[in-house]
Amino acid sequence: MDVLQDIFVSLSSLSHLELMLGLLITATVIIVLEDWRLSLWALLAQYVLVSLLLARVMPLRVALIKVIVGGMVCVILYLTARRVHWGREAIIKGAYHELAPVATVLDIFPMNLWFRLLLALLAAVVSYALGTRHPFVDHPHGISQACYWLVGIGLLTVILSRHPFKVGLGLLTFQAGFEVLFATLEKSLSVAALLGVVNILMALAITYLTTAQLTVIVKEGRR
């Protein structure tokens, strides 16, 4: 815990502009890229950045809980993603001949890449404008912008995805955005802990649904 705290303190020298830029990149990766590995790394980075942002408005130990929970969520999702071969349906169906020897560009970038990028850009502009003109709270550290941005990108990811894993990443991003706002309103340790349990349960539910879909795909493949 102390080591984590030291790392956290050293990272807290980042300015809130840098943190916002980091959140912009991580959430864009989640919405734009199809590759589960990259999305998972982006989610982990997003949890760290959100905690660093929150460390400015709430006690450090409570902010650290969010990093620990984020780490647990990502480990759960990593193990699931490995089990379902990172969502590559050809492997799951046993159709190895359909699979390229290495991940192709299309495995990483979706067909509607430009559309998603445009949506992300639009969401960024709207979040900035809303966060500046109608801030939820009076904190100056870009809390409102971060909240609008994460909630917006979370919703868009849910809308644009058809796989439970990606929908789950969208829901976790939405939840993270809401927690940014709520952490400034309610700073108690018990609420932070309960929100952490909610996040872990959500990750477990995503895991369960992703694995269940694997069963369906395998059955269809056998037919």
């Binding site: 439970p164 929908v167 709520f182």
Partner: peptide, 19 residues
């Protein structure tokens, strides 16, 4: 196994309602 849409159709509104 239920269709994937069943579970997603349940979880998404739930996560939107709680905030």
């Amino acid at each position: 196994p239920a269709p994937v849409g069943t579970a997603i159709g349940y979880v998404v509104p739930l996560v939107m309602a709680i905030p």
